[in-house]
Design a protein around this nucleic acid. Structure first.
Lengths: 208, 208
DNA sequence: GGCTCTGTTGGCCCTTGGGCCAACTCGACA
DNA sequence: TGTCGAGTTGGCCCAAGGGCCAACAGAGCC
């Protein structure tokens, strides 16, 4: 599996639609995973696979909007494109507000469908790249011992070693050592870099 | 004019609609500015007034979508709600993708309309508060002399005074003075605070 | 010609940061 | 029981940050 592969999860209870759309997308180099059942899709869903979901709106068991909600409820940021024969405006508005990439009507124009999938691919890539960068930071932060993390928060808050020592009930020298280790382990050479790293990781520092 | 006033800019070529919706919103405490012409609205539009635009989709001269684009094109972040008698799904999707709060169909349900206006009010407040906080930072940054701003960028980038001096063709002592003045003028007491302030202002620091 | 703002520099002195080496305690683990 | 990681502390020394006072140059303004 190469990095630039992108899978479209096709969910539609009409097998004819699955085949037709599947062929179209495969011809353009996309991988396809077809599902006739929304629950089967949800059950086997792997968020780590780059891709998007192309959902029929009206399906047995779970309709498209509910499936979209179920996806985001389980922490997935899977991009969703809707495809429907009998949608209405309020439904399309709800779908778009819930973050759908597009809301297409059957019979669908190939151009529109491909544009939507391309947009989903772009957004998915963006999200994954942000997640990857955040993840590499979190990984490095996990290398710090609890005490080092504590010291780091104070440093990021702009405290002097002496102040940190007072608040943590120890002496300046100890803080210096922890501080040095934090800088080494995180691979930063200035407090400025440390602060930026902490900001990206969403670390608030220590209040007043 | 108190701070908590919120104006709904009503744009519809049907005066009956303007009156009816105007009464409804005024009864809920909203200020109203009605326009029968989209171009008149655009021409007199004041982005500094907290509020949202409630636009008819099909109007002479300029239709709703074009008006929405014209607003964002002229740098306005005015929140837009659409109201239409003859919309379709593709149009609603375009409107929502362009950032509309809602896309309502006539005859409109009072509850839906009020909910959309409330959401617009929330979002407008959020945007204005962010803009205000950014603005106060920009104002403080404008107090710095050009040289001080230059030194600040290097400090934020994590450079040592000695390095900055080398790159700016001066001596360490001079940098110390500028640096001290930067900290004073911006009212921060640590490099960490300075870096956070710069990040919020979108200042990148100085490349390698 | 004075005056102010900006940018510059020097000296002096103290605080803070931080590297290197060494040492100790304590709990976990084999 | 010996070892290891984590946390701690000390001494020594040097580099870097930064406040205070003083001074000077050039541009722009009244």
């Amino acid at each position: 599996m190469t990095n630039d592969e992108f899978t479209v999860f096709l969910v539609d209870d009409d097998e004819g639609v699955l085949k037709a759309i599947g062929r179209l997308l495969q011809a353009r180099g996309y991988r396809i995973q077809p599902f006739t059942s929304p629950t089967a899709f949800l059950a086997s869903h792997d968020v780590s696979i780059p891709g998007c979901a192309l959902l029929d709106l009206s399906m047995p068991d779970l309709d498209g909007l509910a499936l979209q909600q179920a996806l985001s409820a389980c922490g997935s940021e899977r991009q969703v494109i809707f495809l429907t024969a009998k949608g209405d405006i309020p439904t399309s508005v709800r779908a778009m507000r819930a973050g759908a990439i597009d809301f297409l009507t059957k019979p669908v124009n190939d151009t529109d469908l491909l544009r939507a999938v391309q947009e989903a691919e772009r957004k998915d890539g963006e999200i994954r790249s942000k997640a990857a960068s955040l993840n590499s930071i979190i990984t490095k932060l996990a290398l710090l011992t609890p005490r080092e993390q504590e010291v780091m928060k104070h440093v990021v808050a702009g405290r002097l070693n002496k102040q940190i020592a007072g608040e943590l009930g120890t002496v300046e020298k100890t803080i210096k050592v922890h501080r040095g280790r934090v800088m080494n382990k995180l691979g930063v050479r200035s407090v400025a870099d440390l602060v930026r790293l902490a900001e990206r990781a969403g670390i608030a520092g220590v209040g007043s």
